[in-house]
Every structure is written in C-alpha cells, then in structure tokens.
Amino acid sequence: MSALTAQSSPRGPKPKRLTPARVGLYGFVAMSCLFFLAPLYVMIITSLKPMEEVRLGYIFKWPDSPTIQPWIDAWSSACTGLACEGIHSGFYNSIKITIPSVMVSIFAGALFGYCLSFWKMKGSNFLFGLLLLGAFLPYQLFIYPLVRIYAWAGAYGTMFNIITVHTIFGLPVMTLLFRNYFSSVPIELFKAARVDGAGFWRIFLSVMLPLATPVVIVAVILQVTGIWNDFLFGTVFAGQNNWPMTVLLNNIVNTTQGERHYNIDMAATILTAAVPLTVYFVSGRWFVRGIAAGAVKG
C-alpha cells in the first residue's frame, strides 16, 4: 500500500493530437464529472429555494428568488420529530466528540505503534494481529457486549462512552499507521537515544513523536473525517443529549411528519458535510495519502 504515496507525476503514453479517441476520452471524463457533481449542485440550489419553488420540481433549475432562510431554519429551527431546534446542537456535539476522540485515538495509536516497533515485548505481535483482525470484522459483533459493559460501569450513553468507543475502533488503523512509519526509522536513532540516557517516555515524546509529524497530520485528517462522519457509534453509544450531527440530520430528514421541507433538509445535509469537505479541500494530496494509509478501515 506504500506504493500509493510514492509518485505524483503522470506517466503513460504521450498525448497525441486531437483524435477521435481523444475526444471520446474527454467526453467520458466530462460525463463522469457531471455524475459526481450533479448531486451537489442539486443540493445547493434546492437549499436556496423557497418551498413554493421546491414544490414545482425542476430540480436542476436555478432558483428564481434565492433565499438563505432554509439555511437559518436548518441551523436553528428544523424539527427532528421530538423537538424543533435545528441541527446546531448536533454540530456542537460533533465538535465535542471529535476533538477529544481524535487526540486520544492518535496518542494511543502512536504509543502502541512505538511499543511494537522499538520495544519488542512478548506477545505483542499476537496482540497486534488480534487488533488488525478485529478491524476487518463488522462492528455489530462488538457493539452489544460493549453496551452491556458500559451500562454495567454506569457510563452508557455519555461523552466518555462515545469518545472511548471511537478510540477503541480507531486503534487498528492508527496503530498500523504509526507502526509502519516507526519501522522505517533507523534503529540506530533509537539506540543513540538510549545511550544518551533517554527513557521510554522521553524517546517517545521528544524523539519519535516529533519525527512522526507527517503521520500525525495524516492521522488527524483520517480521524477528523472518520469520526465526524460516524453514524453507527453515535446512535448506539452517544446518548440522546450528545447525538452527533449525522444522527440529528438523519432524524430531521427521516422522521418528519407531514410535508417535507426539502430545502431545509438539503441545507442541513450540506451543513453536516461541510466539515469533512473543508478538510478534504484544504488538505489536498494529504487526504489521498490518508485514505491510502487508512484504507484498511474500509
């Protein structure tokens, strides 16, 4: 999988002049872009239409009288079937869940990867194998017993619950990421630090972690998008007061009684997608490196 990060310049046969094949190629690419962009276009323009215009259909038509009211409603007054408070509380919950989860899971993955790479302890490869195997199995296998464990400990449906669950299930990819990186670090560096009298934590915090800054960046991108986009763990573990944005969005859209306000729904959807999309557009090639490295998550 490391090949994915290696090269960036195009190769292959040189372009010819404008032949029919070339025209066909551009046609195919244009059609594909249309397929990928059309849904976003429809969402954006629908979110800017008043309900009277939405009822007419014409999903591809530019709004006659654009309005940002649906966005305001989506943020602060859309109904979930229980309450009409919009999606803003989900936004704050998602932030409260994502920031600690990202930090804890990256720290845990880096620490475990560091242990595996430099401190060969008995049984640690077995443990790592078990962890990776766990990453390949559907989450449903682990969910119910975890609910029981957290309920038994009196922590079910709390912030602590959802953050630790994200840490547990982020561990395989985070560990893999850091272990792969650390195993490419020359062992002499580690030995030199040992000779200089640095201990376990000192080497980790002052030598290895700063060295792994590029991996940390990739890990942050992966975890921020992954945790923000999570729905399953949010519904099961977060508890109603901490529901993340994805859960609230699904409730707003799929439990509405009476007429559905598609313009508000679409505004809420775009708002939910905004954070990962921003990460994606800002991070550029780093994002591709991230999905290449974290692809095992599936």
Partner: peptide, 12 residues
C-alpha cells in the same frame, strides 16, 4: 471532483 463524495458521510 471524483474523490470528494468519499469525504462525506454515508448518511449524507
């Protein structure tokens, strides 16, 4: 353009 949907949640 081709990759951006991958950044979004399955719910979206």
């Amino acid at each position: 353009i081709i990759l951006y949907p991958y950044a979004m949640s399955f719910i979206v």
